[in-house]
Amino acid sequence: MKMIEIENLIKYYGQVKAVDGVSFSVEKGEFFAFLGVNGAGKSTTISILCGDLPRTSGKVLVAGKDVDECPAEIRRKIGVVFQASALDRPLSVEENLRNRASLYGITGEKFQKKLKELTALLELEDILRRPVGKLSGGQRRRADIARALVHDPELLILDEPTTGLDPQTRKNVWEILDGIRKVRGTTIFLTTHYMEEAADADHVVILDGGKILANATPLELKNTYTGDFITLYHADEERVKLLKIPFERVGEALRIEVKNTAAATELILAHPELFSDYEITKGKMDDVFLNVTGKKPEGSL
């Protein structure tokens, strides 16, 4: 069953075409990554998806319902984690969750039950009564995710959820999100600047200038838009130069780019004396993004 179906979506802001004939679909329970630089049309598409912005033309269905015809019904199925925390900083985490739950008619005992569940799932016990303004970035993110899950949404939209977080906290947030997906079967719609976060997605769409440039699984994208890399350790650079193929120095090692794994195997077999200590890796999502859009991803280091 399809959770999202978008067909030929067009959105104009005055004379500017922000979204230009975008079509894609997301299956129920899928982890979907929506990539693009700032201004690519991601936020506009999300706003249309949430029924917060009218479209110029095209079809947008969530769980089989048109967003313009049944906005309230669709909003009950959607939870959003915004890039900037939407929590009220002077209020405690519990007050924030209580306020949010009441917007969905979840009050009294129903709320207490939900609070208990979210507290266990997101390890909120220690921060439940603390004002949001006094929490660390990672703690606030957990509270943000809890807020988005308070009404058991079928679709969780994550708009750059880990921007500004340190690597360890990013890892923790992803562990939580993976758990939610596996336990609840929630469909995850992710936009991110960190391309490697999209590497685990079931399905990736790359958007630029309001148009879809690529729509495939991460493996298909890597196979199509990047080559393989052979990283050579303890190799003589002069001898590698004689191969007359492009390479770069990465720390102590040399990295040779080849078309695919078959080409890598062929090269190694032809020059076994050079390849005594090496590894073959696929290209990264950063390389995919760069090759697809010609632009460096904003979150790349």
Binding site: A72, R75, R76, V80, A84, A86
Partner: peptide, 14 residues
């Protein structure tokens, strides 16, 4: 200014 309004508007509240 802080985005809370956007958050309220993605709920089913009219």
């Amino acid at each position: 200014a802080d985005g809370q309004a956007k958050d309220i508007f993605v709920s089913p509240v009219p």
